[in-house]
Write a protein that binds this DNA or RNA. Structure first.
Lengths: 208, 208
DNA sequence: GTCTATAAATCGATAGAC
DNA sequence: GTCTATCGATTTATAGAC
């Protein structure tokens, strides 16, 4: 009951302790990046919030770039978990609207994503490749979802492939306006307004 | 013809020389911020590209923050000049589409705006107030323009006030996707697709 | 108005003890 | 695995000569 204790309890094993440390560091990093942006966030500040020294942090993430990639992957897993909760194959505008609702309760997470994605367009940014491939994948997923929900022809003569980048753009653009001015921008309502534009049977002509 | 020369030529006066210096510094700053982002852009690098020392630069812009605000104001003047060229009171979706066309030829300028606007949502950012009031003003201008062009009722039951933030969001969101992947994202075409969604007479129902 | 020199702080990262 | 100590580079900004 002494030396063997390290590997005894399920939540106290070496592997589990390591995972907890990493999780604490990632949470601290995500918060600070959301507050201050990636460049202004120092490893020392992340370490302090996570409750260890800068060098203890560097044992888990050897460089600042490694930490950044881990933060992005963690955020992606959160998104995926939210989508998966709605059931497999059910990705539609309803699920997306619920994701926007969820985002409206988590400004820190949204800020992390907004700041990092825009920052990534600069030269030699460590997250550039991540966001480039992520946007490509999201556009393709949106096109598939739009086709499943509305079929081949959308209002304005659009195809699902041409509407997909607009859907992604609206989500990102609304996040920016909402982060800057949450009192004036009702992000969830605005997103549903856009969804109404995409629904082919929503036009009001001929009703009066 | 010696000491008095400084103020002799119309384009060589003290005032004019000062203005030229400031313009050169602003242009260098805008380029570097577009390439590297605001945080990674050092005053020394801006000074070098503008052809003077870092301390010479600080004579014209006493802090980095002063320089940033000047860059934002200069970019706004460029935008205004582009819009004004179309004639007074003519702000409509056509003019906006032309602005998007113009932006598609100036990735550096677009990058400056995209990176700075997203960066501004972080705590105590020097450009925060600028973007907050700018977005508010742009939304209001868009609502006025949409009302003038389409009247009170838009597709999906939207009002001009509710469509305005969507219009702004699409422009910003498309810029981000286009900056990351210009080969895959046709920004001008995608924006015109969105305009087609807003035009009440564009629906295809009843035509077949 | 522009320069040289330098202050003062902070950064990411390494070395080595425990 | 976490710590103390510290290096070396870079940053913004100031002081003062010309």
């Amino acid at each position: 009951m002494t030396a063997q204790d390290h590997g005894a309890r399920p939540s106290g094993g070496r592997q589990a302790q390591r995972a907890e440390r990493r999780a604490a560091i990632l949470e601290a990093a995500m918060e600070l990046i959301a507050e201050r942006g990636y460049r202004r966030t120092s490893l020392a500040a992340v370490a302090e919030r996570a409750g260890l020294s800068q060098q203890g942090l560097l044992h888990h993430f050897p460089t600042k770039e490694h930490l950044l990639v881990a933060v992005l992957e963690a955020r992606d897993r959160w998104d995926l978990a939210s989508s998966a909760a709605a059931g497999p194959g059910s990705l539609g505008t309803d699920t997306l609207a619920q994701l926007v609702d969820y985002n409206a309760t988590r400004p820190g997470i949204v800020q992390t994503y907004t700041v990092l994605s825009a920052d990534s367009v600069t030269e030699d940014h460590p997250a550039r490749a991540f966001f480039e491939s992520r946007f490509r994948a999201v556009r393709e997923a949106m096109a598939v979802a739009l086709r499943a929900e509305f079929g081949e022809s959308l209002p304005g003569g659009l195809t699902p492939e041409r509407a997909a980048p607009l859907l992604v753009a609206v989500m990102d653009g609304l996040q920016l306006q909402w982060l800057l001015d949450p009192e004036q921008v009702d992000m969830p309502a605005a997103f549903r307004d856009f969804v109404a534009l995409l629904a082919p049977a929503t036009g009001r002509r001929g009703e009066d």
